[in-house]
Nucleic acid binder design. Structure first.
Lengths: 203, 203
DNA sequence: CTAATATTTGGTAGTGTCTAACACATGGTA
DNA sequence: TACCATGTGTTAGACACTACCAAATATTAG
């Protein structure tokens, strides 16, 4: 019972999952998301529809599959102690974006561009953002069941994630040509108080 | 062709729509969202399934139906000129919550509580929040096609809405017994910089 | 090496959401 | 009353997704 995760089964499973997702993304790009059925994806990957649903519980999961959450939490934990909560989360998010490998960033671009155009995917994308937020809050909460502290965590992470999302959206709308970490830093500076443009009355 | 909107048809349409939504909310509360089919709702409201889909394009729309967007924009426009963008949006959101009628607030509570427990509704709820954000941005953008200004709008409204959402979620989790406008004000004060608790290293 | 076991996959049948095309009935109008 | 617009129902159907059972394949034990 070696089970170092190196069994032939594990290898095949990973390969099958990869194949399904890659064929799915290709077909979605070629024919569009709604015009591509799960059966199409299954046929392209040479498996049955059932197998697709086994690996991806919903069709939207073929596009949305994040693994950045732990990375982000690590970076938040590594921030200096005297720093404000918002500042820490903000910098951690910007750093995570800056460290992204080109391939990952290309995948992010494809995901966001698809998500912005297909309503079903867009809703799922927001829910993924909420999952990230909950993950961060739970990680930073620790053992202290202080409701006020937890509320502060929710607010700060929510605001920072919203700012980061605004940056990602603008970046994706520009075809991914702009500087993503720069946009995120700019966004996070705006909520840090430097952005003081006027709100109403001007039109 | 009087058409003051007072035709017998308009009246019946409004009444039908109301009846469908009320029966839907009642059934969802009684049996649960997933355990209630659209056919059940149609039968309860004494219409056909088709008619339900005519009024509510998706099952989730039976729960999520917002009309606060114009109210919020009005309040943002009414803010004084020298105020910062975030401050203006924040205060406008808190004011809107404070002015809510009891019936509306009860409906909001039911919606959010349902949304927090049913994944499909939750995703739709986030997308509704995005719609609100887009509505605000487009309203404040005016005629000026300045990309940087627009980016600032997206970031500020996103952060404020995230803060307001955190307040609403805590309020709903507490059964609606806490002071919602107070929670929103507290949340918005946190992102305004007063909340300066430390982030990492403490555990 | 062989047999027992566990896991992955496929097939079938079904439920439920949602759409499209058509016919019917009813309210508004001349 | 005759004509037109509009709301509604029926039917048929595509598609996402699930439950149940059978077959194939990998792993493990003897």
């Amino acid at each position: 019972m070696v089970e170092g995760g190196r069994g032939l089964r594990e290898v095949r499973k990973a390969r099958t999952q990869r194949a399904i997702q890659e064929h799915a993304m290709r077909l979605f790009a070629e024919r569009g998301y709604d015009a591509t059925t799960v059966a199409d994806v299954a046929a392209a990957a040479e498996v049955s529809s059932m197998t697709v649903f086994r690996y991806f519980p919903a069709k939207e999961d073929l596009v949305m599959a994040d693994e950045y959450d732990p990375v982000i939490v690590e970076r938040i934990r590594a921030r200096p102690a005297g720093e404000s909560l918002i500042q820490g989360v903000a910098v951690a998010l910007a750093e995570s974006a800056a460290d992204q490998k080109p391939a990952d960033r290309a995948m992010l671009l494809a995901r966001v561009q698809l998500g912005l155009s297909v309503p079903a995917l867009r809703a799922r994308m927001w829910d993924g953002q909420y999952r990230t937020q909950r993950y961060i809050v739970e990680a930073l909460r620790g053992e202290s069941p202080d409701p006020d502290r937890e509320f502060e965590l929710w607010v700060a992470t929510g605001a920072c994630l919203a700012a980061a999302t605004a940056a990602i959206m603008r970046w994706a709308e520009g075809g991914g040509h702009e500087d993503l970490p720069g946009l995120m830093t700019a966004a996070l500076r705006i909520i840090r108080g430097s952005g003081t443009t006027q709100a109403g009355s001007e039109l």
